[in-house]
Amino acid sequence: MNPTTTKKLLLTLLAWGIAVIVFFPIFWMVVTGFKTEVQAIAPPTLIFDPTLAGYNTVIERADYLKFALNSIVIAFGSTLLALLVAIPAAYSMAFLPTKRTRGTLLWMLSTKMLPPVGVLMPIYLLSRDLGLLDTRTGLIIIYMLMNLPIVVWMLYTFFKDVPKDILEAGRMDGARTFQEVVYLLLPLTLPGIASTGLLAVILSWNEAFWSLNLTTSDAAPLTTFIASFSSPEGLFWAKLSAASTLAIAPILIFGWMTQKQMVRGLTFGAVK
């Protein structure tokens, strides 16, 4: 065997060893979801009769679907709203830049720096007084605002990559701003908009500070639902694992699909 192949084999062994260790808790969770409750707490083994009982009980519980639906409505609702507000803003920043554009962008970024726990009390009291505690509307509004700076930033970086000539050509033909955005810009930047949207969905789906503090049952998303397993009487590992697997699977796939563009969004364009 020549030295390059040996080196490659050793690297493969090392890298895969680390990858397997890092991924193990997720793998173990998925496996445990296919066990019975008795097998779940038996000494760890990979040899067992897989059963769908855990998944069935979780899905059959009517409230699981309610929590899943809450997560979907809140994540996608807040993302759509954020895109709706952010697209015009990012458009004007990218195509009609002024002296103030840079300052506005940086200011938007700085609003992300307010730690949620610093404003826990006001947001809690405002939600209570406006009747938004434990409602989907409340979380949709908060997540929309939470993700708005990232969404504007990401869209701005994607829009800036669009050659100005294309839009100029459209403008000559007498296209209004609205038409310009809808018929020219959106189709051109659809992949960028999609990955921006997916990132916002991921961040909203996994958010666990506001959801734990502002929802209890009616509007509780999956983060809150899973947390309810932490009570001692709720220790059913197979069910916990099945519910967790269902809760993270779509987001894991979204994340894998958009990892390249996510780096851009998460670092505000500082790393491409």
Binding site: F23, I226, I248
Partner: peptide, 8 residues
């Protein structure tokens, strides 16, 4: 992958 797992 762990980065995409919700904290709870």
């Amino acid at each position: 992958a762990p980065f995409f797992v919700m904290p709870t």
